[in-house]
Design a protein around this nucleic acid. Structure first.
Lengths: 115, 115
DNA sequence: CAAAATACCTCGTCTGTCAAGGTATTTTCT
DNA sequence: AGAAAATACCTTGACAGACGAGGTATTTTG
């Protein structure tokens, strides 16, 4: 269990949605984007990524379509839906809340006080 | 999937260890402590808690012993080991790092810039 | 022409979470 | 005294997300 894995579990969907906020993109590029933004600290595994795409699409949070590349390998592009934006927003708020909870519980030493 | 569940997944062990940093404690009390420290926002489920205890003990991060209560129900106390403290410390550092990564990826909109 | 890179995808395994079920004792309420 | 709630422990099985391993096809590079 590296840095990532269980700890990032559950954030994959939100991370993907975040990459789609400003422009449509495709799997390979999204993955690279994630790697770049974290300076290589985190990289989504392909299996994880594609299962997440399926989930998000089934839930109606993203739409997909084939790009019409005249050269290069075919690409499946993904675009975020309105529902996806709402879902992203919720998740982001949850994250801010949970961050606080974990901080409290982990740093948590009561530093004297109570009882 | 409530606020907690997948998102907190992976932090359970660290949260438990944190509760044991300053004094030994037992399952029920640890659970209450978690609930109290988060004002009820988070509560570990019993199943999750006890499986985590088993894992932590097998890994040598905590030790357990039966309390000699003369009244009240029997209690199994847990104490953190030196290895547990080290593990806690690592996890805490990982958390700080991951927090930054997720923040970057979720807030992530590059806010113009790159490329 | 072979190898590497781009680009897609699925399947099966693993692991942590948790609902549901269970035991035993003590306290509180009526 | 008896019932209900609280304290306190525990296990089992199902579920879901992550991911290693495997696979296809095209294009670029050497």
């Amino acid at each position: 269990m590296s840095l990532t894995s269980d700890i990032i579990r559950g954030h994959t969907e939100t991370i993907i949605l975040a990459q789609l906020l400003h422009h449509d993109s495709y799997g390979y590029e999204i993955n690279k984007s994630i790697r770049d933004r974290t300076n290589g600290d985190y990289e989504a595994k392909e299996g994880t990524l594609y299962t997440a795409f399926r989930r998000l699409e089934q839930a109606g949070y993203i739409r997909s379509y084939w790009g019409d590349e005249s050269s290069g390998a075919r690409r499946r592009y993904y675009g975020i839906t309105d529902e996806g934006r709402a879902y992203y927003q919720e998740n982001k708020e949850d994250w801010l809340k949970i961050k606080g909870i974990i901080d409290r519980l982990i740093e948590a030493d009561t530093t004297e006080g109570g009882n």
